[in-house]
Simulated assay, not measured.
Amino acid sequence: MAFSICSASYLAFSYDVVPITGRRRLLPVSERYEMKLGAAIYKELLKELGGFIYPKYHPIYKRVEYVGTKLARVSGLQHFHWEFHVVESNIPNCFVIPGGKVFLFTGLLRYLDNNDSLAAVLGHEIGHVLARHGAEKQAFSILTRFIYPLFSIIFNIDPLLLTGTTKLLLELPFSRRCEKEADHIGMILMARACFDPFAAIRMWEKLQALQKNLQEPMTYISTHPSPDDRANQARSWLKEAYQERAVYCS
């Protein structure tokens, strides 16, 4: 139960503002620890996925690397060693590791029929890095691991019930907020990189249509907002995105 000194050793509370969205927060995980964790995860992923990663001479990799590099250049994180990996898999997924390591699965790539839609996905992942969502989620995880047993003892609540309730009321909304924020940041980045931000709306509408007949979890018990919600949110940022595009691409 104890919140170990080891776990607490990298908690260094600092006041922070998320770029582009302006959200204010306390971020109690050092960037050094975040990079160290990201490097360890990256090493393991390369071992696990190495046989399925496209080589750098492959045309599909070159397309992803071209779009990703353009986005990274306008992110303010040019000092990161960005790596973009295309993974052969039917799973429609894309994720990023702290430090700028992006993994895009061909199961999602097949639905990205132009560079603008590809920029919408990669911009979202770069948005996670720019907002340091990895550090924020790590801090959230540490705090909840401490809070669960403490509250269970103080209020005599069944640990399993407390864990399920906290997940529903805190963890899932927190995760969805991070996803929406990465959507917002990504849309601005793709505009600054001179891609068409309207492609983000088209992409979410397309994914919504593809998933219409699939049985999916309701939005409020999902880690991600529904594609329909994300398309509507993207519409609300469209004016801002085109203003940014006019400045950066004139």
Rank of each mutant, 00 (worst) to 15 (best):
K62N: 05
S152F: 04
L45M: 15
G76E: 01
F52W: 09
P159S: 03
F140H: 11
T69K: 15
L130W: 02
L169E: 05
L162P: 02
L49A: 00
F84S: 05
R145I: 00
N114C: 12
I53G: 06
L71P: 02
V129P: 01
P159H: 05
V74E: 05
N93S: 14
P59F: 10
L71C: 13
L46E: 13
P149D: 04
Q78G: 05
S75I: 10
A40T: 07
A135N: 03
Y148T: 06
Q138L: 15
L104A: 10
F84R: 05
T144P: 00
V86L: 15
L143C: 00
R110Y: 13
A131R: 05
L160A: 12
K167Y: 10
S152K: 10
S75D: 06
R63W: 10
Q138N: 09
G127W: 02
T144C: 02
I142H: 01
L104G: 08
Y42G: 03
A131M: 00
E88V: 15
T69L: 11
T106N: 07
G164T: 05
V67Q: 06
P59A: 10
K43V: 06
P149A: 03
L130T: 06
N156R: 11
L71S: 10
H79Q: 14
L46F: 02
Q78H: 07
L45H: 02
E48S: 13
I91Y: 13
L118A: 11
